[in-house]
């Protein structure tokens, strides 16, 4: 069964003229890693908000069509219970820290406290997550005094510790430096190995190319393209919809245009190297 099923979904935020989502139909399967790319204002974040239940529970407005999470319509879900099912990490590393805990260890434990998990179990889970995400050296630090990159890692740990089956990650690195970005992608790699259902919105296309199973390109509230990662990212048409193309793919097309085509269009550097060597 599909984890999330969207059927002819349209949505308009309150007090706005344009539809934020237009007639979207898509099934997100359990255990797959999805990447969402495309122009800003094209509906990427709104789609996340919809799956997360923030639309229509938090942001009111007009929702049409069926949105099924685990077979139950989103309107029938209790938003509070949904948060125990779907984890959510977003851009701003500063607003995701609660501001009420004095150590990282307690910050990471907050969600589990709210869920009423027994204390011994909290300690065990938080310890494991901190080791897994390599923030064990930070556990005694004050989360309100960390750098953006460190805070974003703590935000990930806080959500991952809740062990939700599904994660929505909305532009986690757009406000981080290269080191913070690398650390966050290290976390995303770890998550991929855990076989959770993951939806990642991200502009850093080389990272998308590396980790995602399927890609959706959003434009003007609709899905312009969708399919397996390689097929989508090697298609130059996606740039007309505001999506970036991996440098390796741009290079692949430039080779073809120059009359020196590679066997196929690469989307990562490690894919490009043998293709070039084969040609020579």
């Amino acid at each position: 069964m599909a984890k999330i099923e969207l059927n002819d979904v349209s949505y308009k935020y309150p007090y706005t003229k344009n539809q934020a989502l237009r007639k979207i139909s898509y099934n997100f399967e359990s255990g797959k890693f999805y990447g969402i790319i495309g122009e800003n204002g094209g509906g990427k974040t709104t789609l996340c908000n919809l799956i997360r239940g923030l639309v229509p529970h938090f942001y009111k407005g007009k929702l049409k069509g069926d949105v099924l999470v685990d077979g139950t319509d989103i309107r029938d879900w209790n938003l509070d219970e949904l948060s125990a099912q779907i984890g959510y990490v977003f851009q701003n590393p500063f607003t995701q820290i609660s501001g009420i805990k004095e150590t990282v260890f307690e910050e990471v434990a907050l969600g589990l406290e709210n869920l009423g998990v027994p204390k011994e179990e909290i300690i065990e889970k938080v310890t494991n997550v901190c080791k897994l995400l390599k923030i064990d050296d930070l556990i005694e630090n004050n989360p309100n005094e960390l750098s953006g990159g460190q805070r974003q890692r703590v935000a990930f740990a806080s959500i991952i510790s809740m062990e939700t089956e599904m994660l929505i990650i909305d532009e986690p690195t757009s406000q981080l430096d290269p080191e913070g970005t690398r650390d966050v992608f290290g976390i995303i790699k770890t998550l991929k190995e855990s076989n959770k259902t993951i939806i990642l919105v991200e502009h850093k296309i080389d990272m998308i190319a590396e980790y995602c199973d399927e890609i959706l390109v959003m434009s003007k509230g609709s899905i312009a393209f969708s399919g397996p990662t390689h097929e989508i990212l090697s298609n130059p048409e996606i740039m007309e919809y505001g999506a970036m193309m991996p440098q390796s793919a741009i290079f692949g097309h430039a080779m073809a245009d120059a009359g020196k085509p590679l066997a196929r269009i690469p989307i990562t550097l490690s894919e490009a190297v043998p293709l070039v060597k084969d040609r020579r």
Binding site: D80, Q96, G111, E113, N114, L115
Partner: peptide, 20 residues
Amino acid sequence: EKAIAMDARAFSVKRKHTFL
């Protein structure tokens, strides 16, 4: 944003909380 972030941490789930 903070409301959304806290919501993701099951802040409003109606259960008896534990205290670390």
